[in-house]
Amino acid sequence: MTITTTLEPVTGPFVWRGDELSRTDDWIFRLGPDQVAELEEVGRRFIADDPDLRTVSAAQYPLTAAAEAIRRFGADMDSGRGFVLIRGLRMEEYDDTLAAAIFYLIGLHLGEPIRQNELGDLIDHIVGVSDKAYEEGGLPSRTRDKLPYHSDSSDAVALMCLRPPASGGLSSLVSGATVFNELLARRPDLAPLLLEPWHYDWRRQDPDAPADTYTSPIVSWTQGCFSMYAGADMIESAHRYPGVPPLTGPQREALALIEEITYSDGVALDMDFQPGDIQWLLNYAALHSRTEFVNGADFAHTRHLLRLWLRRDVGRPLVENFGKHVVVDRSSTRTEDAVRDTQGHFRIREAAAVRTDWGD
């Protein structure tokens, strides 16, 4: 790929449009029978061993048949389009615990799982069980509403579909570089603002956060490498806290233009998740969202995704304090008092079940 250190258009494989990719299935990887059988076998051993999710390592559960496929997933994220969709798991034969074990094992072989909340949970659940709308403060992972395009709080994020909804719930991706290039073409005067620090609402993302906000640029462009970290709604809501300076007129224009571009015809790629689908995404390469969805009357038609966040060493230089740099790894505690970390679900059987004591 060729990237300059000046504000010129970005080029490379992670510059793409959804209307072009939707004509192919090159971004879908179908697991073969031997790979599926190995993942199932090792997943069952993982459940039987019941290791602590905070300390277990990939070396304890080596893979051979699936090793090359996982290497390919990583390459697709790091130096390809920035994402891959995996298919082929036999979900009709699994319970949620085995599905979660296979998912976590693949994650271990791709990076280091990190905490997704201040309790220390390493697997989160994306389910539409909240009676509170997203606009009313409902957690994105618990509502059924459409979500705006955003970046998650890790190097890589993965979603595994256990069950789809009765209708809706498409997963939508846009190339961050494509969005930037279009903004640069339309309003080159606004582009430099994206390299400056912006406040993000930390407490809106996690009600147990130790601070109200954190700061990050929207764009990191250093040592010839372009990355993007966005989330207009989290930026907007950060300015409700005392001491956070109001957004300027040009900043508001930049956020509005980013949103306009992401929803322009042909920019996004939509995925209709089926049971067993796993989407791997490098957060620095693409933004993601979902459409509104409706759950059915029974459990089999309730949208239920598992989520992993990974710290992944991709050799990607980033400017200081880029992204949600306040996230800590899976074994760390934020303070000397580790009470909250004892409240996390650190065994695969409990981690595979939706928490009813956290989130709304």
Rank of each mutant, 00 (worst) to 15 (best):
A101N: 05
T64N: 12
L53V: 12
G74I: 10
P113H: 02
T97R: 07
A37H: 13
K132H: 10
A59G: 08
T143P: 07
D96F: 11
G128K: 05
G74S: 15
N117I: 02
G128M: 04
E112M: 11
V36P: 03
R45K: 15
D52K: 15
D78L: 09
E112C: 07
A48C: 06
E118Y: 02
S79E: 11
I102K: 00
E40H: 05
F103W: 04
E92C: 04
I126N: 01
F46E: 09
A75R: 11
R87D: 01
S130Y: 13
D96A: 13
I126V: 15
D95R: 14
R144G: 05
D52M: 11
P62Q: 10
L122R: 04
D49V: 15
P148L: 10
R90I: 03
L98N: 08
G43A: 06
I126W: 01
E118L: 00
V56H: 10
A59S: 15
R72F: 06
A48D: 14
Y149H: 10
D95P: 06
A69E: 13
L53Y: 13
L147D: 09
I126R: 00
P33C: 11
V56Y: 12
G107Y: 02
V56C: 12
E38R: 06
T55C: 07
P62F: 13
I47T: 09
V36T: 14
Y134C: 05
L98I: 12
A133N: 13
L110Y: 04
L147R: 07
G138W: 15
E93L: 09
R54S: 10
Y94I: 06
A99Y: 10
L108R: 01
G138Y: 14
I70W: 03
A99I: 05
D78I: 11
R115Q: 15
R71P: 03
D96G: 02
A101Q: 04
F73D: 03
A48W: 08
I47H: 09
I123Q: 01
R87M: 02
Y61C: 10
